[in-house]
Simulated assay, not measured.
Amino acid sequence: MKPTDPRSPGHKSKRPTRKQRAMKAATESAGPHPDVHRQDGVRLQKVLADAGLGSRRACEQLIQDGRVEVDGVVVRELGTRVDPQAQSIHVDSMVITAHTDKVYLAFNKPRQVVSAMSDPEGRRNLSDYLKNRHERLFHVGRLDYETEGLLLVTNDGELANRLTHPRYEIQKTYLVEVRGQVAKDVGARLKAGIELDDGIARADSFKLLDATPGYSLVEIVLHSGRNRVVRRMMEAVGNPVTRLVRTKFGPINLAEQRQGKMRDLRPDEITALMEAVGL
């Protein structure tokens, strides 16, 4: 056999040794380090990436290589979550200062407010509710002028892009008041798909909540982010919308939040959003 043949005596194989494979398997199968893991925290690799140490994948490699310490403990598990404001993080003995400029807000948008930071027509818009904020913020998706309810506002571009990308199929829940009685087959029709001028739109779920002689109240869940899709779907089945409120965006609930109020998301809500899009 030639000396370059990997089977020849003395040849140095590029394959990992049995010990290296065992260590890698143990690392990958291990759960988050119990001494430093914070259930409501942020994934360690995201903290490192936000601090400018490279791409998310490069930061994952730093962790797997044993180059990252949290509170003096070497962390190799990619599932570890941390609180960058309360915990000490080092890479190669260099202290990491986490960015503290990320903002995550939930806004209960009233009717006749434009989902934009300005409006050439002078109508009320999001900037009217953000006068005390100095960050460059933007909304995640949009609600049309007449629609009320939950709108997320942030300066985290990566999270916002994933939340609105069709790949992640983030569900949105709407409370819908419509004109007239809803036919028994409407739920099945909406879930099967309604042909609109820009393609078929489907509801993930449909529920009739209440009915009076002239109006019905329904709940619709769907992951489409197309313009005025709920209004167009209900119009197509013969029940025009008279009032539309988004009550949930992914794992975030509007709950009892007052109309026109902007609030900071809780750490567990931020974590839930990131988990929903694989961050």
Rank of each mutant, 00 (worst) to 15 (best):
Y129Q: 10
V114L: 11
L151T: 02
Q181T: 10
E169A: 10
R123V: 07
Q39D: 13
N161Q: 14
L150P: 01
E169G: 00
M117N: 06
D264W: 09
F138Y: 13
E135F: 05
R76K: 15
R111W: 03
A255N: 15
H37G: 06
G157W: 11
D65I: 00
L222W: 03
P166E: 09
S224T: 14
L244P: 00
V82C: 12
S88E: 14
G278Y: 02
Q20N: 01
Q85N: 13
M262I: 15
A26S: 08
G199W: 14
R21M: 11
P110N: 13
I63L: 07
L163P: 02
V68P: 00
R43F: 10
D119I: 01
V186A: 13
Q39R: 15
R167A: 13
G52Q: 11
F206Y: 11
T173N: 05
R228S: 05
Q39E: 15
K109H: 12
G72R: 02
Y215S: 11
K2C: 01
Y129A: 05
V36P: 04
V221W: 00
G225W: 00
L217M: 09
L265A: 03
H90G: 00
K207I: 01
V42W: 10
I194S: 01
G122R: 04
K207Y: 01
T27N: 10
R38D: 02
G250M: 08
D198L: 08
P240K: 02
T4I: 10
E235Q: 15
M233I: 09
E69A: 09
S115Q: 10
K172W: 00
S115K: 03
V241T: 09
G149Y: 04
R81A: 06
G157M: 05
K131D: 11
Y215Q: 12
G141P: 05
V245D: 03
D128A: 02
R167F: 04
P34F: 07
M262Q: 07
T212R: 14
S205I: 06
P120Q: 11
V73F: 08
G225P: 07
R136I: 04
A160F: 04
E169V: 02
R202A: 06
A192C: 00
S224A: 09
D35S: 14
K248S: 11
E269L: 10
H134Y: 08
D40T: 11
T247A: 04
M117D: 13
V114G: 06
P120N: 12
V74N: 06
D83F: 02
A22P: 00
Y145I: 09
Q259F: 00
A51T: 03
T4K: 10
S93R: 14
H90Q: 13
Y174Q: 07
D35R: 15
D210I: 06
K191S: 08
S205A: 10
G260Q: 11
M1Y: 07
M23L: 15
G149D: 04
Q61I: 07
